[in-house]
Design a binder for these strands. Sequence first.
DNA 1: CTAGTGCACGTACATCGTACGCGCACTATC
DNA 2: GATAGTGCGCGTACGATGTACGTGCACTAG
Lengths: 299, 299
Amino acid sequence: MSEAPYQVIAAELRRRIEAGELLPGDRVPSTRALVRDFGVAMATATKALQVLQADQLVHPAPGVGTVVGPPPRSRRTAVAPDGVPDLNRDEVVRMGIAIADAEGLAALSMRRIAAELGVSTMALYRYVGGKDALVVQMVDAALGEFPLGESPAHWRDAVTAVARVHWAAYRRHLWLASAISLSRPQLVPRLLPHTDAILRALRGFEKSAALSTTISLFAYVRGIALVMESEAQAEQDTGVTADEWATRQGDQLAAMIAAGNLTAFQELLADGFDYEYDLDQLFEFGLGVFLDGLSARLR
Amino acid sequence: MSEAPYQVIAAELRRRIEAGELLPGDRVPSTRALVRDFGVAMATATKALQVLQADQLVHPAPGVGTVVGPPPRSRRTAVAPDGVPDLNRDEVVRMGIAIADAEGLAALSMRRIAAELGVSTMALYRYVGGKDALVVQMVDAALGEFPLGESPAHWRDAVTAVARVHWAAYRRHLWLASAISLSRPQLVPRLLPHTDAILRALRGFEKSAALSTTISLFAYVRGIALVMESEAQAEQDTGVTADEWATRQGDQLAAMIAAGNLTAFQELLADGFDYEYDLDQLFEFGLGVFLDGLSARLR
DNA sequence: CTAGTGCACGTACATCGTACGCGCACTATC
DNA sequence: GATAGTGCGCGTACGATGTACGTGCACTAG
């Protein structure tokens, strides 16, 4: 409920500026003054001022203070010391993706990224707000690898195209499925064009139906992708493939089926039916069924 | 790849028993002997013996050792000290569910459960194998709250009934959607009857199509449930409802829409369209579309 | 009584995200 | 030129977490 301390401070300063108590050119209270007056830590005061900086309400003047007004032009580029690859946010995000791709989201830690980049852990926080924010950036960057291209003319082809792009992204970045749902409903900029493409394709439908369709479809694709992810994760953790696992656990499964009087399962086993477990096919199957259902409604 | 130490030891002992090197009545090496011979810790040796006990291959004789052969009858119930509520696994699982229901899966910790139950943290490990195993138990127990009942005669009604039961479970236990996918593809006993019910309903379909349908459907329901969960989690964390958030972030969203030339979005906003964000309706909508698609294929 | 057992569980560790606050390079002022 | 004050980068340290480890216990055969 109550805002974070740095937000309280930022709001108070914003009020003073907008009320004219602080005019352009005036110096806003220094970080150390904020520390005294509000009884907070240095970092908190700094963060509060950063909020105002992000809104272009104030700008920092090194050696002077933080002054009211938009930042002056000619942002002098800091002199890079020498040969240092010059860390930036893209670098951090890229490394995060690399680690998550290789070892899963669970292996992603700030320390790990820093070590891999050869910098100290806290240096990362200059470029990303925190781990949650980093993951959101990673999601956005990962989606960015798969541009949409032109929408096909027929609505069904257009929707299929978007779904397949999503699927391709999930396939390439197995962690994506869980990351995109994680944390609160974030604004992932590059997801918006996808939604838009589907909405455009579904102009023939009622508005609320079109929106519901979009969400349902995304939910379905992510659902299948999560199956894929958990399987891959398990295989990596245990070194046992799905087939091997099925064989190994087969006895237990059979016992449960017998105990539970699961007739349909029993028939399946009795026939010696061997299910071809191909998630690509599974994805296409469910997508096709869903689109068939939409077709039926369009008429 | 390489098995865990306790599994190696268990396998070795099992081999000796099955090879006749250890006969019924013989005493298997004591935990301390295993500690010496295999260079492992006490707990590891104990765990190895527990594996064999679970298979009824050996049984413990307090004060004597662990002897080969199935346990004798007349399992004397330990004398409960006095008035102690007598902790057991159900108690632990129940408390885990209570905490996860109230504060989400992230708030679930072994220490928290122990504190809530008034026992020491490590005492929990007598009843559950670890946190992962506990979560699997929680999933199973949560599903157990929603028995299936008789299957309706028509296949469509039958499938709908199973999907709604799933949805009800996700609705009641918001953490369920992420927990059921978490960790490896576990054997959740009470999930099997659900699968079986759908397979029975879909006898008219080809076998592989029926199985694909089942997985697709589960993926879809869980996908929608995850949307519900992340929203509830965000609301709890920030104290901001989805509507309030939409209002607050509306400006940013509008800016992005304008910047990205998202025509369908623009139309939506221009009409002042207000989407009724009801996940129950959304769930039913997607389910209906999917089933319509199946109907079309059945003909 | 002694030596040895299995078992319960308190302590301690490795790991995590990141709040905190120190020291730096810098500049207006005197 | 000395001084006092600034914003900023980042090393240290904290409070979590899951659980491996090893100690002390009740017990039994000899």
